[in-house]
Design a protein around this nucleic acid. Structure first.
Lengths: 241, 241
DNA sequence: CGATGGGTTGACATACTTCAACATCAGTGG
DNA sequence: CCACTGATGTTGAAGTATGTCAACCCATCG
C-alpha cells in the first residue's frame, strides 16, 4: 500500500490492516498547491474541506479585531489541516501556508463515511488529534508560564523533535523557514523581543537561528534550561494491535 | 435510555441510536468520589483510566519543576477527565478536583472496544475532543495576545457560556468555586494581579466576582471589550444525523 | 484561640513593548 | 546597470504592564 507521511504517522499508533490503509488512501482526493502567505482556510468559513499536508510548512492562527494574531501551531508534512473545522462545521481559525505547500484535499463526507466503516481508522485519527492537542497544551504552558528565553528554547526543541520524527532534519539541527514575525506571533512576544532573545540564546551558546537554519550548539544545556520533556511527542507502542 | 450529562452533550452532535446510547451507558463503571485539592491523575502516570465528571469542578494542569503551574482547562459536569491520557498511554498533565467531585470511571479497554463496535460513538467522542481543543486554543489566544483585563473578561464570559449550556447557571450570572489562585494559574498571571484586575473590571461596571459568584453587570460591554465570540462553543446542528 | 487559606492593598522591581532609526538583501522596473 | 521598494533583521532609548515582596484583614476550623 501507499506510504504517505500520514499513513506512516497513524500506523505507528494503530496497526492498520491493508483494507484500512486502502480506505485511508482512497481519501486522498485532489492534489492542490497553495502559495506562501495566502490563507487557505479563513476564520469563520463553513462547509470546509480538510487537507493533509504533503510538503511545505503551514500555520494555524487566530486573528483579533485589533490586528494582532496568535499562531496556534505549525504544521509539517503528514499533519492534518483543518480537521477541527470539519468536525465543528465551522472554522474557528485561519490557516496560512508559511512556504508554498502541496496538500491533498479530503471531503468531510468521505472522512465521516470512512469512520463509520473503518472504526479503527476513527480511533487512529482520534489519537492523532490528541497528539495535536498535547502540543497545543504544551504551547499554552510556554506562553503562560515561561519567560521569553525559555519559551523560545522550548519551542525550537519541540520543533526539532517533531521534524526529526518525520525525517525532515536532526533534532539538533534543521532547516526552518519561519521569520521572526512568525516566532513572535507564535510565542506571544513582539518581533523586536524575539530578535533580542535569539541573540541572548546564541550568546549563551545554546541555539543559533540564522539563514533559515536552527542549530543547537549545546542540546543538553538547552533541554535543561527549559525543562524540555518530549514525553508528549513519543510513541509508547501501538494503542491497538 | 439514561440521560447523563455526557450523553446529552454527545447527542447534540451525533444523533445516537438507542443501541449506541446503551453502549455509552455500559461504559459507566464504578462511581467514585474525590475530595477537593487531592490530585486524581498525576503527570507522568501510565495505564490510566479515564473519567466522566458527574458533579463538581476539576482542572487539568501542568506543573513545572520550579513550582509554577499552568492550568490548562477547567472541567464541569459532563466533561471527560483524562481522555487524552488514555489515548496517549501516558498522562502529560495532572488533574485536580477544585471542589469535591463525583466521577464515573471508564476503563481504557472498554472505551476502545466501544469505538470498534460503535463507530458513530467514536465520531461523537472525536467531536467532543475537538470542542475541548477549540477551548484550549481560545485559551492560548487569551494568554498570548490579550492583556490581563481582557483575558479575565474573556475567560469569565466563556465560563458563563459553558455553564449555561449544561444548565449550571445563566451566562451572565453563575456560581464559581474558583479562587484567585486558580485564576492566576489559568491566566498566566500572579494572584496579586488577578485581584487588581478583578477590581478594575468591577469598577468599570463589567463583572463582579465576589463570594463565589460571577455577575456580569454589563454583559454587552464585557463582550465588546474582549471581543468575545462564542462560535467555537456553539452547536451548528448534528454532524451525523 | 491560634493556625490556615483566601483576599486586599501599597511600594518597588523588571520583563517586555513601543517607537524609531538603520542595515541588508532580493526583486523589479526604468 | 541602477534606483527604488518591500521584507526581514538589528539595535538603542524610553514607556508600561505585570511581577515580587510585604503587610494586613477576615472567615473558618481545628
Amino acid at each position: 500500500m501507499t506510504d504517505s507521511p500520514l499513513s506512516r504517522k497513524l500506523a505507528t499508533f494503530v496497526a492498520l490492516s491493508d483494507t484500512e490503509l486502502a480506505v485511508l488512501d482512497s481519501l486522498h482526493k485532489r492534489r492542490r498547491i497553495f502559495v506562501a502567505g495566502r490563507d487557505l482556510v479563513l476564520q469563520g468559513q463553513t462547509e470546509q474541506a480538510a487537507y493533509i499536508l504533503c510538503s511545505g510548512w503551514a500555520c494555524s492562527n487566530k486573528l483579533l479585531q485589533d490586528g494582532q494574531r496568535q499562531i496556534v501551531d505549525f504544521q509539517i508534512p503528514g499533519d492534518f489541516l483543518g480537521l477541527r473545522s470539519v468536525l465543528l462545521h465551522i472554522s474557528d481559525h485561519s490557516i496560512e501556508p508559511v512556504t508554498d505547500i502541496e496538500v491533498t484535499e479530503i471531503l468531510a463526507s468521505d472522512l465521516l463515511d470512512a469512520f463509520a466503516h473503518t472504526p479503527r481508522l476513527a480511533t487512529a485519527v482520534l489519537w492523532a488529534a490528541s497528539r495535536d492537542e498535547a502540543m497545543v497544551v504544551e504551547h499554552l504552558v510556554d506562553v503562560g508560564r515561561r519567560n521569553a528565553a525559555e519559551r523560545m528554547a522550548h519551542f525550537l526543541l519541540e520543533l526539532g523533535a517533531r521534524l526529526s520524527l518525520v525525517g525532515m532534519g536532526e533534532k539538533a539541527s534543521f532547516a526552518c523557514p519561519l521569520t521572526q514575525y512568525h516566532l513572535a506571533d507564535a510565542l506571544g512576544l513582539s518581533a523586536v523581543h524575539i530578535n533580542r532573545v535569539l541573540r541572548q540564546l546564541r550568546e549563551a551558546g545554546m541555539v543559533t537561528f540564522r539563514d533559515g537554519r536552527v542549530t543547537f550548539d549545546n542540546y543538553e544545556k538547552a533541554c535543561a534550561f527549559t525543562q524540555f520533556d518530549p514525553t508528549y511527542l513519543d510513541q509508547h507502542g501501538p494503542l491497538l494491535k
